[in-house]
Design a protein around this nucleic acid. Structure first.
Lengths: 112, 112
DNA sequence: TTATTATACATAGTATCACGAGGTATGTCA
DNA sequence: TGACATACCTCGTGATACTATGTATAATAA
């Protein structure tokens, strides 16, 4: 079987940050935990996405020292980011609903 | 807002053929209808996918004349294809369930 | 009659996306 | 001290879906 593509990475990242500020590494761990390891996001996937979100003004980064003495780069969801999250959620529900409708044989999705 | 990528095209194609034999153009129309135009698949997307499915032995093509006198190329789901459909459906449910779990804040997905 | 549209198939080029591989650096623990 | 976990990052590659384009026929409009 082929490898399952990640997809919807932005939605997942935004959703994670919707709850609390997080740093990249933490997001990967959390995503794996919350999805029961269905999502095993790679650094090579997440970091470019975070940088993109930052450039778009959806997240803001700040550095904070961890209890261990190490510096971490935390990401905070901006207002604009929260709107984007809501939009992406809608988009996901629409998408998932449409897939399910097709699988059921086209029982009909709500009109858009 | 960025364009939403199709994704899971194979699943959708297999699912359409799970009901009855169809020809490519018909699949595009049907998919749009059943998904209420959430999916507006392009020929440039579908045909390569169909050819791939054929090469893998998931579908078999045959030509049949339409009432209009025109020739159409119908695709039929093989046994192997039906298995692939079931597998893709499982995969989709797993994926969608995991996304929903993350959106809910990680209420927990069934272990895999 | 002729032009346009809808039907029907197909490929080539392009953009995006996620991954693998690799690099850097620090803290912890045996 | 050396291995491992933590923590960040980039580059190259492959997969996927899109746009654009090409071909051809049937139906319809001008």
């Amino acid at each position: 079987m082929k490898k399952k593509a990640m997809e919807h990475t932005r939605l997942l990242a935004l959703s994670l940050l919707g709850g609390e500020d997080m740093y990249g590494y933490q997001m990967i761990i959390e995503l794996a935990r919350r999805s029961n390891h269905v999502f095993d996001m790679k650094e090579g996937t997440l970091y470019p996405v975070l940088h993109g979100l930052e450039q778009e003004g959806f997240v803001e980064a700040y550095r904070k020292e961890a209890p261990t003495g190490r510096e971490r780069k935390y990401y905070h969801l901006t207002r604009k980011g929260r709107e984007a999250l809501r939009e992406e959620e809608r988009s996901w529900k629409r998408y998932a609903g449409a897939v399910d409708a097709v699988l059921r044989g086209g029982a009909g999705v709500e009109p858009v």
